[in-house]
Amino acid sequence: MKKRGLTGRKQQAFYGILYILPSFVIILMFSIIPIILAIYFSFTKYDMYSPAEFIGLQNYEGVFKSSTFYSALWNTLKYVIVTVPVQTLLALLIAVFIADKMRGLYGALLKSTIFIPVIVSNIAAAAVWKVMLKTRGGIINNFLGLFGIGEVNWLGTKALAFLCICLVTIWKNVGYYMVIYYAGVMGIPKEQQEAALMDGASPAQRFWHVTVPNLRPITYMIVTLGIISSFQIFDIVYQLTGGGPGTSTITLAYMVYTYAFSNQKLGYASAIAVILLLFVLAIHWLQDKVFKER
């Protein structure tokens, strides 16, 4: 009997390993090995043609001496701070609104409309926005002109260019998070809402004391996904502003791309990528701690 029990556990472990093996191989090939390689290359001078040459911490020294790196770091943090809360809150409010007030055809239409930007590629969306945001002849300035508002230099002033990057990102992401929230709202037991109603809770109180606590696990997931994707922001910046004007919209991921593929400085780019990875890990750890404590 003892032998059979052990065999059973071994068999279970064997099957378990087999089941996770495909996912593990994918993660190993496309995440773990590239991360290890990036860490290795960050200590080398490597241009993709000549063999990598070990240079110790020189890439990190170069990165920390670069004023563009600090601009990129600050822009990335600002970007995370602006986009994650706004897109999360907007997605939650829209999901609750549709679930409460628009469950029929109009609700479905609204959900689809808000979700459409999600299925458009970032590059294509940013290209369209770039045309719309042109100072002269852009559709947005033409529209504003109808109300007597002069030409706004959307992509040519630091603050507005940054704001445009944030707005396009929020517009792109909110539909995705809204759908996740919507599923969560629909899963909240009706009894809880009804009990709160019978106790005389106002809509705001029901939202704050019933809906929000029930959606905490979803909020945790959405904030985590939002932070990770915001730290990786590249394509919208690349297409819309190219990191400019000046370095006002340059981000860490954009800097990695520029040094790796425009300038063939793979070692230098890897050092920036490793620093970016450490930031994401640190912020995720902090976020994990905050959510668990609450």
Partner: peptide, 14 residues
Amino acid sequence: NADSFYDILFKNIQ
């Protein structure tokens, strides 16, 4: 590394 130079100069002129 000419492309890198032009890119940096371009952003600084902006």
